[in-house]
Computed example of a mutant assay.
Amino acid sequence: MNSFEAATFPLSSQPNRRQAISRVAGGLLAATGLAAPAFAQARVVRIGTTFDNSSVEKGNGTGMFLGSSAYFNAVNKAGGINGARIELVAADDQFKPEKAKANALAFAADSAVVAMLHPLGTRQAAEVIDAVPGMAVVGPNTGTVSLRKKNAPNAFWVRANYDQEIDKLVATAVTAGQTRIGIVYSNDPLGQSLLAGFKAALAKAKLEPAVVASTPGTTSMEVGPAAVQVAAAAPQVIIIGLAGTAPAFVKALREAGGKSNGYGISITAGSLSAMGELSHGLGFSMVMPSPFATKYEIVRRYQADMLASGNKDFSLPSLEGYVDACVLGEGLRRAGPSPTRATLLAAMERIEAFDFGGVKINFSRGNREGNQFVDVAVISASGRLLS
């Protein structure tokens, strides 16, 4: 087994050698049980993706992957892109930055891999972007502003940044007459970025924080002390700057007697299913339209392609993964019939003011932040997503 194969992972609980390569011909892993389309002597273009498939961010990671897989499966059924079959190759980094870097380097060693798609996490995305400077990294799943300020020419951001998200959440709370607003964040680069955005948003609204609480880190389940601190301060709104650990925090907050309204950031969406009834009434920012908002053409295509791939559960993470794949797919079309890493990079920056069916992307040679869409949604008492 070479270094590339060692970096891939199976999603099947009982992988065989063929599954261990985790090759997504037609955009779906062998574990889904769906047949890949037939290509006679077709050219193959490979896309690498590294994300958490086994740790605290598994909900977000696998959600994004299901969406991007559904897109490439549909593309391949329609004949591929410029006649080439697209293979999406996945690697589990267990939400560990060093593993994300190792996976990226393994992908870079395979000349058939021309780009990387939606790495998950702030430190993970930073490692991936740095590890493959000559390869496009499309749709990193983080909104950390400091990472974007590095202006890496190979990073193409498909989601809004966290400052924009928190500004929208604070503005929504203020509009509703809620001015005692606090935040809980993880004490790491992600959390520090969120805290800075929170302070800026409050200053803009001429408010002071009702409470500022932190957890030890993005993956730390030690959320009890922060929950007790927030419950004691009793803010009207607590902005939950957590992702995979958000369910544990919300549960601890309610057990501590905290009755504050919770507003999560977009990466909270991947853990909503783990909250059960605790998610009811929770608001959160969205960097994509609702996956149920069929007034958007891209949502209708997403739903159809997900169903065709055997996935009936629509979610924000899978819609984001789908949109990331759409953006990369457009870059591949513009790169021509024999895309290289260099021609794809050049093609990506020519995606200017392009409407993907309700999501508009605007890149250029000097701009890698392609989308500023932010909305706020609430989980109703019946579990419905209302935006």
Rank of each mutant, 00 (worst) to 15 (best):
G276M: 01
S279D: 09
H280T: 02
L282H: 02
G283C: 00
F284N: 07
F284S: 03
S285Y: 08
S285L: 06
M286G: 10
M286Q: 15
M286F: 11
M286P: 00
V287E: 00
M288P: 05
M288L: 03
P289N: 08
P289R: 00
P289F: 04
F292E: 02
A293V: 04
Y296L: 07
R300D: 01
R300A: 09
R301A: 13
Y302C: 02
Y302T: 08
Y302W: 11
A304S: 11
D305L: 13
L307A: 13
L307G: 03
L307M: 09
A308R: 12
A308L: 13
S309W: 01
G310K: 00
G310F: 13
K312F: 13
L316C: 12
L316F: 10
P317W: 10
L319P: 03
E320A: 05
G321P: 05
Y322A: 02
Y322C: 09
D324Y: 11
A325H: 07
A325V: 10
C326M: 14
C326Y: 08
L328D: 08
G329Y: 04
G331N: 12
R334L: 12
G336M: 08
G336Y: 07
P337K: 06
P337S: 01
S338K: 15
P339E: 08
P339W: 05
T343D: 15
L344G: 04
L344R: 08
L345C: 09
L345E: 10
M348N: 15
M348K: 14
E349F: 10
I351E: 05
A353H: 14
A353K: 15
G358K: 06
G358V: 12
K360W: 01
N362A: 03
F363R: 11
F363I: 00
S364K: 06
S364Y: 03
R365N: 15
R365A: 14
G366W: 14
G366L: 14
G366T: 15
N367A: 05
R368W: 02
G370D: 02
F373V: 09
